[in-house]
Structure formats: structure tokens, C-alpha cells
């Protein structure tokens, strides 16, 4: 929407004004995340830019918070816990979620709306309520404070994302493909694996990424559900933020931002591949 040459001053003001406003909003969105990156290289234990940093003096910068993050057991243990919990939760959410999404997209799924509402609800119910309910209930069945307790809870929280992304890819699914496969003699399982699966794969992967990040970032449920042995990275950050504001948090945060950026790139590539496969040009 380039500005035509005959635009009136008012149109001109509107055109640039809008861009300035949007620029400011985008700045508000991104700046806080970006600003912690240089701060994480602060050579001193402060949360502000020191004069040395502003003068771009190399002495003002250091990797010491990263060294702390990557060597201190207080951070490494939670990091490994997160890396142990999130993939398992993702696996459960993706397996069950994909099957269910395929079922839900069938033309003759009974009580579709109600079931969909139930399956999406973990995303909607306030986390503190999910956490409280799970805490009491899992305690009673002996899952509270165990690895599997946290994994199952996180899997439940990740399910809606898998359902949403996979059903989205199935909406545009051309049914004649399954019919063609069936008429060529393929059984339902074979049809699913050979025809449907490659097409919904981007949705499955995207859902998996969402489920992974849900578990990887989740703090409320794990604080209630987990014991010391299941302390995850966000939990350690929460404790650190509330109790001991050590600049190592900023190093941890920067690492997490990097992970987010990588995931975002992965998703963007998936989206493009998906569009290509469906014959839509990414214009």
C-alpha cells in the first residue's frame, strides 16, 4: 500500500503516523526481550547498563553469568530436568493429539463440538486452577512429586495446541485422496500413514513445537506438582526472580530467547513448506 503521489497532507500524515505508531508498538513488543541480551554480558552483578558497558569498554562485558549458568548445579539440574520432561510430555501430547485430531476431522464424529471443547479446555482453564486441581488429585494417587506426574500434567496442557494445529491442516485436506488410496486397495492404517500423515506432518510438527514450548516454559503447574527432583528451568527462574535476583537469570533468559528464535525459524520454514505442498505460493 504505497502512498500515491496525489495523496493529501492528511493522508500523508495518516500514512506515516500509522507507521510510527506501529513501529512504537513493535518496539514495545520486542525491546524488553532484546534489552536483556546485552545486560546478560554485564561484567558486574547489576541489572543496568554500567558506564563501562555504555562506553563499549570490553572490560564492561564478560561471560561470567553464562559460565555460572553452564557450570552451576543450581541451573544445570533444572535445565536437564526441563530437557527430560518436555520431550516426554510432547511425545504423549502429539501421539494422542494427532490421533484425536484425525478422529475429530472425520465427517461422522459424534458429539464433535462437546469433545472439542473438552480437549481444548486445558488451554483455557486458568493455570492456577489446573495446578490446584492436579496438586490435590495427583497427591491422592501418588503422582505428586514424581517425574511422571509432571509429564502427564504437561502433556495435558500441550494437547490443545496439537489438536488446533493438526485439525487446521486437516481442514484443507482433500478427501478424495483417501478415497483414491482406499480404492487402490490400501487399508485405513496404510492410507493414514502414506497419504494423510505426510500432509498433516507440518501441523503435527508445529503442534509438537507448541507442546514442547508449553512444557518447557511452564512454571505454575510444575511448582505445585513437582518435588525438588523435578525442578525445571522456569521454576528455577521464578525462584531466582522472587528470592535472589542473580544476573544469571539474564543469561538463562538469553539462552531461552535463542531457543525461541530457533523454534520460530523452524515454524516459519514449516509454514512455507506447507504452503508449497498445498500449491499455494508464499507470494
Amino acid at each position: 500500500m504505497a502512498l500515491p503521489r496525489y495523496a493529501t497532507p492528511a493522508q500523508r500524515a495518516w500514512h506515516y503516523g500509522l507507521r510510527v505508531i506501529v513501529g512504537l508498538v513493535l518496539f514495545y513488543l520486542v525491546a524488553p526481550i532484546i534489552v536483556i541480551i546485552p545486560l546478560s554480558f554485564n561484567a558486574r552483578d547489576f541489572f543496568t547498563f554500567t558506564p563501562e558497558m555504555l562506553a563499549l569498554d570490553p572490560a564492561g562485558y564478560s561471560l561470567k553469568h553464562y559460565r555460572d549458568f553452564f557450570t552451576n548445579i543450581d541451573w544445570q539440574l533444572p535445565l536437564w530436568n526441563s530437557l527430560k520432561i518436555a520431550p516426554m510430555a510432547t511425545l504423549i501430547a502429539v501421539t494422542l493429539g494427532t490421533l484425536a485430531a484425525v478422529g475429530l476431522s472425520q465427517a461422522h464424529m459424534p458429539w464433535k463440538r462437546a469433545i472439542m471443547a473438552i480437549l481444548i479446555s486445558p488451554m483455557i482453564v486458568p493455570l492456577i486452577i489446573s495446578a490446584a486441581g492436579m496438586y490435590f488429585f495427583y497427591s491422592r494417587i501418588g503422582l505428586q512429586g514424581t517425574y511422571w506426574g509432571v509429564v502427564l500434567a504437561h502433556a495435558a496442557l500441550g494437547v490443545p495446541f496439537v489438536i488446533i494445529t493438526v485439525t487446521a491442516t486437516l481442514v484443507g485436506f482433500d478427501r478424495s485422496l483417501t478415497r483414491a488410496a482406499a480404492s487402490l486397495g490400501a487399508g485405513p492404517v496404510r492410507t493414514f500413514l502414506k497419504v494423510q500423515m505426510p500432509l498433516i506432518m507440518p501441523g503435527v510438527v508445529a503442534g509438537g513445537l507448541f507442546a514442547f514450548i508449553t512444557s518447557f516454559d511452564e512454571v505454575v503447574v510444575v511448582m505445585f506438582m513437582g518435588a525438588a527432583g523435578q525442578k525445571t528451568l522456569p521454576w528455577q527462574m521464578f525462584t531466582g526472580l522472587r528470592e535472589q535476583i542473580s544476573p544469571t537469570i539474564l543469561a538463562a533468559a538469553t539462552v531461552l530467547v535463542t531457543v525461541s528464535i530457533l523454534l520460530l525459524i523452524a515454524l516459519e520454514l514449516l509454514r512455507r513448506r506447507n504452503e508449497r505442498l498445498r500449491g499455494l505460493s508464499p507470494s
Binding site: 520486542v30 524488553p32 526481550i33 536483556i36 512454571v219 522456569p234 527462574m237 533468559a253 530467547v257 520460530l264
Partner: peptide, 15 residues
């Protein structure tokens, strides 16, 4: 827009 969406809640709150 998506970067903050994908960034950990704890990261944004600490920021």
C-alpha cells in the same frame, strides 16, 4: 509479533 509470543513468560517477566 511472534518472537514475544514464543518467548518464555518468565523471560518476559524478568525483562
Amino acid at each position: 509479533v511472534l518472537l514475544p509470543f514464543w518467548t518464555s513468560l518468565l523471560v518476559r517477566t524478568s525483562a
